[in-house]
Design a protein around this nucleic acid. Structure first.
Lengths: 214, 214
DNA sequence: ACAGAATGGATAGTGGCAGTATCCATTATG
DNA sequence: CATAATGGATACTGCCACTATCCATTCTGT
């Protein structure tokens, strides 16, 4: 397949495909002549991956570049770790971490018995999210609050990663799916939470009005 | 207080404060002379709100402008609706909505008995998140899957909006808190989910290795 | 009283990001 | 064999969120 077909199949404009190649997001086609190159299904899939990370997960191209670089690691060992590597790139620290947030996360992880190391990216992501919250949210959040969120997170993990889940050691597709599964469902979770918030506040408001109103 | 004090109190540079005023994010100070104006606590709080929406919720300034415009609505009735208005501005539709996603959301809302209208912003946000997922996630998601997410969302709403919650009709602060409460905790939920994912995949991988390995 | 800094306000410039546009020397195609 | 498409490189664009500069006041310290 040549570039125009790759473009029409994926819906990505030709100049953008060229741009992605320049940026190292997409491997070059297989050169057959000075101005001819063959693209195949791996290019189609890679392009879809790039677009979904960009459109749904809203990742900057630089981060997507790191993610696909992790997928391209040829080491078999690295393959097993590619999900982690990819998500490490996604969950950038992106800010300071306060003493108290650090401690809160450490204690939480200990309480829940989570098998994650403090140098894990999401670990620090959580700490920095808590740090940000501290400076903007005056009301303090307690251990109990954190535990409730943790319970919810555990429940999500429970049904999102089934019991018979296969560790993705089987190449790019499996890893890409694992990464996408984590990222693509985020907007859904957030949207549902907002809906549930809306429902509950409408419900409670009505009740308050029924109780006090005419 | 003058602009330099406002700046040092909030940590926002003076030129940026001026810029926010120009953009209509922050009201002008109270002019006392050709080149003197008084700023007060409302400016400090507004500035903090702007920064937290920008830093934590990652909203573009244009959307923040809509949010604070909703907060500034003087109508008493509008005040009660300001949370909704603010969140409407946040949850932009931002893309197509497929037939099937539309239907899935409608059915979900009906099943759960959620008191939200189809023209509610988060309603459409969910539909468009599902639409995006459809084009990137090959495996189909079932009603059952959606229900599980919905249960989690309900659980979140349950403890995030307490039983004795007061509908925020009491001015900017209450409304701002409601909006922030929805937005500021999102990174925490996502980070925890990633941690829980990591824990579970580590756990399941270990078990698989123990079962099959040496 | 007065020099130097700070202020409110306006206009212009910057840097990063994610593409688009143009150009060129080939190569493919009707 | 004329026209279109291709791979590749370089240059340009548009948007966003600031920064920088400028100017005519006004404040502040001595």
């Amino acid at each position: 397949m040549r570039i125009s077909e790759l473009s029409s199949v994926t819906g990505v404009p030709v100049p953008t495909i060229k741009f992605y190649i320049r940026q190292g997001l997409l491997p070059r086609g297989n050169r057959t002549a000075a101005n001819q190159a063959q693209y195949d299904n791996t290019h189609v899939e890679r392009l879809r991956l790039i677009r979904s990370l960009r459109d749904v997960a809203d990742l900057p191209l630089a981060v997507i570049a790191e993610v696909v670089a992790a997928l391209d690691e040829p080491e078999a060992a690295a393959q097993g770790q590619a999900v982690t590597a990819a998500l490490r790139a996604v969950a950038a620290p992106e800010g300071e971490i306060s003493e108290s947030a650090e401690r809160a996360v450490a204690e939480l992880v200990a309480r829940r018995g989570w098998a994650v190391e403090p140098d894990f990216a999401s670990y620090r992501a959580l700490a920095s999210a808590l740090t940000a919250l501290e400076s903007y949210w005056v009301r303090p959040f307690t251990e109990e609050t954190l535990d409730r969120y943790a319970e919810v997170a555990e429940r999500l993990a429970e049904f999102e990663i089934p019991e018979d889940w296969d560790p993705p050691a089987a190449g790019e597709n499996a890893v890409a799916y694992a990464v996408l599964g984590t990222l693509l469902f985020e907007p859904i979770i957030l949207a549902m939470r907002r809906l549930a918030h809306a429902d509950r506040s409408i419900r409670l408001t009505r009740r308050a009005q029924d109780g006090s109103g005419s």
